[in-house]
Design a protein around this nucleic acid. Sequence first.
RNA 1: GGUAUUGUAACUCAACGGUAGAGUGCCCGACUGUCUCUCGGGUGGUUGCGAGUUCGAUCCUCGUCAAUACCGCCA
Length: 592
Amino acid sequence: MYRSHNCGELRMDHVGQTVTLSGWVQKSRDLGGLTFVDLRDRYGITQLVFNMDENQVLTEKARKLGREFVVRAEGQVRERSSKNANRATGNIEIDVKDLQILNASKTPPFTIEEDTDGGEDLRMKYRYLDLRRGPLQRNLMFRSKLAVETRKYLSDVGFIEVETPNLIKSTPEGARDFVVPSRMNPGEFYALPQSPQTFKQILMVGGFDKYFQIVKCFRDEDLRADRQPEFTQIDCEMSFVTRDQILDTFEGLTKYLFKQMLDTELPDFPKMSYDEAMERYGSDKPDTRFGMEFTDMTETVKGKGFGVFDSAEFIAGICAEGIAESYSNKDLKQLTEWLQRPQIGCKGLVYAKLNNDGTIKSTVGKFYSDDDLKLWAEKMGGKSGDILLLLCGEKEKTQKQLNELRLEMGRRLGLMDPKVFNPLWVVDFPLLEWDEESERFHAMHHPFTSPKTEDIDRMMTGDHETMKALRADAYDLVINGVEIGGGSVRIHDRDLQSKNFDLLGFTKEEAEAQFGFLLGAFEYGAPPHGGIAFGFDRLNAVMNGQNSIRDFIAFPKNTSGRDMMIDAPSPVDNEQLDELYLSLQEIEKSGA
RNA sequence: GGUAUUGUAACUCAACGGUAGAGUGCCCGACUGUCUCUCGGGUGGUUGCGAGUUCGAUCCUCGUCAAUACCGCCA
């Protein structure tokens, strides 16, 4: 027997019992005649004691243990003479009678502790060591429970979990596909699914009116801290439902998950239109934990001789509360430079400091009287002690930049409380997005998204400008400025679907070749349906107040899409290539 | 594809253009109540790689590779 108990469960109640523990050596403290060894498993740490007077051979053996040795120890639980209040098992220790080294270990390249000294790349290479650390263990246990609770909730309200294939068909819309060559079908390729989108819609046609799946999705696009090439979704679809029934169902799920996992009661989720989100926050995923909302100043500030404003399409600002005294000119200059980085690309920042003594200091004081500036303050809700920050330019671009500024100020002023969760539904997204480069429309959500009922007529007959303004029955769940998931009511009418493909620039033949199976299915009685998918990795991260999803994935990839542990991707043998009828082009290495 | 930052001992980081250093780890020794044990000694380097400038480069310049963050991209 390797263990009678784990390393986290022994307490004063167990004193006197003979127990067997197995685990890893966290650390040993050799005091000469007395040696302490901290034994660790995923449940906790228990102290082993060896005494030279009582058993010299065993103590000598214990003194030779290195970090991360795997050992089995048998002995008696006893009360400690000096207790450690910082540890759950800190009142007891094991007086070891027998010690077995199950496996020795090389010295690990970084410390296996709560806060490791290892850098990201080392931790990735030795992921199996990093996984032994408390934070990673807790994250993966959290993830496991979150999946279990999701299944519990959804199956309790009647959802059926159905698996869909991973070897499917490449489609031109959306992200780049990962592609898999088919040996049995020379010259042809499968694609890995970007999501089970078409399959879940076909399941609706198949009569599974409530479907869900916790499923891997694959997208061959550049990565970020919150984006992996393979990631997991809670994917759902429902038939015979309205938009609000879908939203209610998943609001219910979200509330349930927060209650079960964090014991947090979420309030009802507000619904905000895409347009409103853009006006108030300049973002389709606003962080509503703090205010600092936009004020449109276009009309207010024009006509006073300040050319930059007078010629601008759009001028808007935010009010940063209570920092007039603490923010020096140097700070503001530095903030301006931050805004001027190419990633953001502002030309400049206009500010007005509303000093506590009632004076106002502004970069554009030359053009605006104190009364003018007081009007600004009034419009923007500024009071003494605040700083008004204004940006101007082309409307969409300026909104985007002001959004960045708002978020940065939120960060700097500590307004993003990690303990607070502010969910909201962003609804009524645009149906189509005009792509200047290819000079055609793209589906903002995906090609099966239904326009809002009231927009259908305009869609069938409207001109180009009308098309840009069409609203879709599409929605996102946003929590603390993170897009947790999104979905839409789908088109179930073949004519409407054809029109949509038309607008997206598909010929009939292309549409048939790409999506014929779905269109065919729709001819046999497709029910009205809609659905949603949550980013499961992101949900884990957000619930734990973290930005990076990597520490919630057991084996993540780095920013170049490499698995540093197994060193993938890697070349394959010519034999393998031949079998697949593939030949490689020379890869040009520049320079060298 | 672009912008930026970083690359020095096993790890985390220092070092004005002038013989490369600390803490941690690791090894040896001492130590009977530690839990960041303590104390003494020791080990440890192709400064990512390649050019260039210079009497001399970890430092400056160019190239290159890699990691990370962001933009583009991605729902």
